[in-house]
Amino acid sequence: MNPTYLIYTAIVLVAIGTALVLTRKSLLFILIGIELILNAVNLNLVAFNHLYPQNVNGQTTTLFIMAIAICETACGIAIMIQVARQYKTITPSSIQDLKEQA
């Protein structure tokens, strides 16, 4: 299998993930977008492992990363719950503490 397609797929995933992160109003979708970007990276690891057929480092690392990604997602959701408690919303555009108060 030509890894080129995998790379293309990864690029598409990164693009989709980035689009999700930048455009969606809900934190849930932003988190999903981040997950997509992460999985694009995983896909890259698998794809570039084709250059070294004698080992499976890429695949193994991907498995680890996926496990950690689950933890990370849990953390993200936990943060989301805290945000929801604090601000009564999970829409980033209505949380503007970084900006000067109008």
């Binding site: 980033p92 970084l98 900006k99």
Partner: peptide, 17 residues
């Protein structure tokens, strides 16, 4: 300068990217 600092997290992220 402040125009770019809209306060939306996603905008910052966009600029970062």
């Amino acid at each position: 300068v402040r125009v770019s600092r809209s306060g939306y997290v996603q905008h910052y992220l966009f600029w970062f990217l």
